[in-house]
Amino acid sequence: MGAARINRLVTSGQFSLDGGTWDVDNNVWIVGDDAEAVVIDAAHDADAIAAAVGDRRLTAIICTHAHNDHIDAAPALAARTGAAILLHRDDLPLWRQTHPERDPDGWLEDGQIIEAVTPLHVIHTPGHAPGAVCLHAPALGTVFTGDTLFQGGPGATGRSFSDFPTIIDSIRDRLLTLPPETEVLTGHGESTTVGAEAPQLEEWVKRGH
């Protein structure tokens, strides 16, 4: 089987919301060993993601939130692999903007532990989206934050379904309480650590959004 490892795949496509469309690069995270894996955020390119998974059994497609750029390839990847799509129920209205014909297969809940190759602890972190979640992998010293926390600050809150005070509360109460050495693997861009981001919290609050 081998030890759990994390692979990063960057895919390119478009993010659309509130009538606007932007070109984006997304991080797709694959967590697994030699035999099986889960995908965190099936963005843009089901073929590229399936190739990165290889001949391993894909057990779940976990959505950190339901903005289209994080879920657009999920149904195609699920159809190809038989993996279940998992999303927090509060993001179902966003999900249905992109995939009105197919709901997720299961619901993520705060405090849930996904028994993957390494246990993934679900942390509900609303703000960027109502059903945004982060996935903490204690054994790997890692948290997958989707678009909740980036290198340099919180995710955007200027569009529908988002709220700046809520994302600040989520980051302060749910993420900055993790060990400071915890690596933060984000939905876009480069990684950071909890310890690197924690001192900036008050500055984000002052700047607002």
Rank of each mutant, 00 (worst) to 15 (best):
Arg102Gly: 09
Leu175Phe: 04
Ala42Glu: 10
Ala83Arg: 05
Gly106Asp: 15
Val205Tyr: 03
Val122Tyr: 05
Gly13Phe: 01
Gln97Cys: 09
Leu86Cys: 04
Ile71Tyr: 03
Asp33Ser: 12
Ile123Thr: 06
Val38Ala: 14
Thr125Leu: 04
Asp110Arg: 01
Pro119Val: 07
His99Gln: 10
Arg80Gly: 05
His124Glu: 11
Ala116Met: 07
Ile171Ala: 08
Thr177Asn: 11
Asp55Phe: 03
Ile114Leu: 15
Thr182Cys: 11
Ala48Phe: 05
Leu9Trp: 09
Ile49Ala: 06
Asp47Ile: 05
Met1Tyr: 03
Leu135Asn: 06
Ala156Asn: 15
Asp33Met: 04
Ala50Cys: 05
Pro199Ile: 09
His128Cys: 13
Asp34Lys: 04
Leu175Gly: 04
Asp110Asn: 15
His44Met: 05
Pro154Met: 07
Arg89Cys: 02
Arg56Thr: 09
Pro179His: 11
Glu109Trp: 00
Gly54Lys: 05
Ile171Asn: 03
Glu203Asp: 15
Asp103Arg: 03
His70Arg: 01
Thr182Met: 13
Gly20Trp: 11
Ala42His: 04
Arg102Leu: 07
Cys63Asp: 10
Glu190Gly: 11
Val28Thr: 15
Cys134His: 01
Phe144Pro: 06
Ser160Asp: 12
Phe164Gln: 10
Met1His: 08
Trp22Thr: 04
Pro93Tyr: 10
Ala4Cys: 15
Arg207Val: 10
Gln151Val: 02
Val31Pro: 02
Ala196Thr: 13
Asp173Arg: 11
Gly106Phe: 05
Val31Cys: 10
His67Ala: 07
Asp163Phe: 05
Ala156Pro: 00
Ile40Lys: 03
Thr186Trp: 07
Ala137Ser: 14
Glu36Leu: 02
His136Ser: 05
Glu101Gln: 14
Ala132His: 15
Pro93Asp: 14
Ala52Val: 01
Phe150Cys: 06
Trp29Ser: 02
Ile62His: 08
Asn26Met: 12
Thr118Glu: 14
Arg159Lys: 14
Pro93Arg: 05
Ala132Asn: 11
Asp23Thr: 06
Pro93Thr: 11
Pro75Glu: 06
Leu77Asp: 05
Leu17Val: 14
His88Arg: 00
Ile167Asn: 12
Trp22Ser: 03
Ala78His: 05
Asp23Tyr: 00
Ala52Asn: 07
Asp18Trp: 00
Glu183Tyr: 03
Val31Tyr: 12
Val38Met: 12
Leu201Met: 12
Leu176Ser: 06
Glu181Ile: 00
Val122Glu: 11
Pro119Thr: 11
Asp173Leu: 12
His128Leu: 03
Asp163Thr: 01
Asp103Pro: 02
Thr177Cys: 13
Glu183Ser: 12
Asp110His: 15
Thr145Gln: 08
Asp25Met: 07
Ser12Arg: 15
His44Glu: 05
Glu101Pro: 00
Ala196Phe: 02
Ala35Gly: 13
Leu92Gln: 10
Glu109Ala: 14
Ile85Leu: 13
Val39Trp: 04
Gly32Ser: 06
Asp23Gln: 08
Ala76Asn: 06
Leu185Gly: 02
Ile49Asp: 08
Gly146Pro: 03
Thr166Leu: 12
Val28Leu: 04
Asp103Ser: 13
Ser16Asp: 01
Arg159Ile: 09
Ile49Glu: 09
Asp163Ser: 15
Ile113Arg: 14
Gly106Gln: 09
Trp29Gly: 00
Ala46Trp: 00
Ala76Ser: 14
Gly131Pro: 03
Ala76Val: 00
